[in-house]
Design a protein around this nucleic acid. Structure first.
Lengths: 157, 157
DNA sequence: CGCTTGCTTGGAGCGCACTCCAACTCCGTA
DNA sequence: TACGGAGTTGGAGTGCGCTCCAAGCAAGCG
């Protein structure tokens, strides 16, 4: 195994800000603890344990703390990050781009500009998708109304 | 070649209504003709010729008219249908469900209720997705503003 | 002690929506 | 008549985002 343990545990320098941005409820966590097993996190996030490990492998998560026996112990910060990733996922952002963002976060504060730019592009994308969806909504309404009319008409004969 | 020419050309009985529902411009077609080649349709819709053939194979298109040499000739009705399918695709509806809808259309007018139900479910889905996207938009705004603040602050020192 | 439960790993497999390939036909122009 | 260009087919391949598998280890319980 050649896991790069280097930038893993000892990072007190890792930017905090990215993790408490879910706005609203700050930490409505299952319990007050700060060391969750993978299955707890799976239950809490709705992601499977498989997916959580995969996220770590591909670099979408920071390397997760381990217990003395090598098992993952997720922190509240990890949960915050997962909540944010969940939001990005909802936007339809490809996983590769999320990984890119995660890399920028790990790289430090000097990537603020690039991160902001990435989020801005994502925001425009989301706006576009909302507009698209609203146009499909108009079509759906139109056709649903058509069927309603047609059925009313056929009942009258 | 055993192309099923049967239910292809002779269908005057196929429901028309589903095809002119794109609301607004009724037929802004490349030219006035009613027999387009696959590459014309590809250019017009943005779908690849491969994808158009695939749509027909899986039953997402009605069987397309053929020239005397067996080449596809798409009609304006086909283009209308493709426009509608494009809308459904934007909703994120799986292809299998679109095929289901296409089957209902081919089955005749007695499936109006089921079609309407399918579209209603889709509409609720779309509404949900719009709401989701709007919540991600809030998060993105929040974080973009965070980066703006952070950069303004760091410039002041 | 054995058993169960929960975790570990690398790598294979899956479902979706295309996307492309090889081998072929047909048509129009030179 | 030769050739380029556009079309045809069934089937295989691709990329993404998971999803699962087999084999193994550690802890807790009776």
């Amino acid at each position: 195994m050649t896991v790069t343990q280097t930038q893993t545990s000892g990072t007190a320098a890792e930017p905090l800000e990215d993790l408490c941005a879910s706005a609203g409820t700050p930490h409505p966590r299952p319990d007050g603890q700060d060391r969750y097993t993978i299955s707890e996190v799976a239950a809490f996030t709705g992601l499977s344990a498989h997916t959580l490990r995969w996220y770590e492998r591909i670099g979408l998560m920071p390397h997760i703390d381990r217990s003395h026996t090598g098992q993952r112990r997720f922190t509240n910060r990890d949960l915050d990050w997962l909540a944010f990733v969940g939001k990005l996922r909802l936007t339809g952002m490809p996983v590769a781009d999320m990984v890119r963002y995660a890399e920028l976060v790990r790289a430090g504060d000097h990537t603020f500009e690039e991160r902001q730019e990435l989020l801005r592009a994502t925001r425009e994308d989301v706006r576009r998708r909302i507009a698209e969806l609203q146009s499909t909504l108009a079509v759906l309404d139109f056709k649903i109304e058509f069927y309603a009319d047609a059925r009313r008409a056929s009942e009258r004969f």
